[in-house]
């Protein structure tokens, strides 16, 4: 119990300050059909997510493909219109703001994209791409912009000579550094990393993660680190949110979650991490079947169709999102019960 609060407190020195709060975020994508293109049903990509993100913290979001983690990130930035819920950033509700009013929050919230090959305009020299950020948000002169961009390039480990190059002339790792440079150009306080290192080689991953960490310390950044790689999340994050089919399943500090997972889905995920160990006798829990269709989610607990310990209650009643231990949230009727039998 004390571990998690102490961890957060010690890393922040003072009481953790809430930077971003999500209240009941929902994002449904309508499915249209028929001759008149009427709405027939919804794909429930994100279902009722509420959480708080503290200043200077890294919150990992993990889950299978299609569980809504990327949609959650985009919804926070307003790249997807919310179906319901509130995004409160620095004590201001930002979900309904017009573009002009939102610009000053845009400077504060940025995103690093998954695919470094797709997130840069192939027809724009990277120096100009970075200058454009300042053209949009500042009144810098051409010379100031150029100098700022060059120092920015150096900050992320690139060189001045890269200024006039096109994206295709870079390697994946270098491109991701450009993406990072673009995201931190305006000194934001919150950055969403949407699978930011998934497309990179393991050795390059480590370099980019180090870069992200050093930038975090330098600018007191908060990260929402979306990933499916539990190893990376364990190394990089302070707290972890587990999602399943658009629902939040478990939220805890890294230590708690990896040592004492409460939800059977988290337990199954953790059992899938390969561990190079000879002494430890561990059982691998394999989940049966695929992720259910989010357009037609199962009744009750969304996980009951694949849960090894599900009972009749699970298919009838949706479990509540509860704080089972201090700062350790989960949504399960049988939280804490082991699935390893």
């Amino acid at each position: 119990m004390a571990v998690s609060t102490e961890q957060i407190a010690s890393s922040k020195k003072t009481e953790p300050k809430v930077l971003l709060e999500l209240q009941g975020i929902k994002k449904y994508f309508p499915i249209k059909g028929g001759i008149l293109q009427r709405k027939q049903s919804d794909v429930k990509a994100v279902e009722n997510v509420s959480l708080q993100l503290y200043e200077g913290e890294s919150l990992g979001v993990v889950g299978e493909s299609g569980c809504g983690k990327s949609t959650l990130g985009r919804a926070i930035l307003g790249l997807e219109e919310l179906t319901a819920g509130k995004v409160i950033f620095q004590d201001t509700e930002i979900q309904d703001l017009k573009r002009k009013e939102k610009l000053k929050f845009v400077k504060q919230m940025q995103m690093i994209f998954q695919d470094p090959f797709a997130s840069l305009n192939p027809r724009q020299r990277i120096g100009h791409a970075l200058e454009e950020v300042f053209t949009m948000h500042t009144n810098m002169s051409a010379k100031e912009k150029r100098e700022t961009v060059i120092s920015l390039l150096e900050e992320v480990g690139l060189k001045e000579e890269h200024f006039y190059k096109y994206p295709h002339e870079f390697s994946g790792g270098q491109r991701q550094r450009i993406g990072i440079a673009r995201a931190i150009a305006l000194h934001p306080s919150f950055v969403i990393c949407d699978e930011a290192v998934s497309a990179l080689d393991v050795s390059v991953q480590a370099q980019v993660l180090k870069l992200l960490k050093s930038l975090q310390q330098k600018y007191n950044l908060s990260y929402l680190f979306i990933s499916h790689d539990l190893g990376v999340v364990r190394y990089f994050c302070d707290r972890v949110l587990v999602m399943y089919l658009g629902n939040t399943v478990e939220l805890a500090s890294v230590g708690d979650l990896f040592e004492r997972p409460l939800h059977p889905y988290t337990q199954a995920l953790l059992s899938a991490i390969p561990r190079p160990s000879v002494n430890r006798n561990r059982t691998r829990v394999r989940l049966q079947g695929d992720l259910p269709n989010p357009a037609n989610p199962p009744s009750g607990c969304p996980f009951h169709t694949r849960c090894p310990i599900a009972t009749d209650r699970c298919s009838a009643e949706k479990p509540e999102w509860k704080e089972y231990e201090p700062n350790h949230f989960a949504a399960c009727h049988f939280a804490g019960q082991s699935i390893h039998q």
Partner: peptide, 21 residues
């Protein structure tokens, strides 16, 4: 494309996205 999404997340106007990107 993701680079258009990236420009939106940077707060680019529709006109800028259409004409420059």
């Amino acid at each position: 494309k993701e680079y258009i999404m990236a420009m939106k997340s940077l707060g680019a106007s529709d006109f800028r996205i259409m004409v420059k990107h």
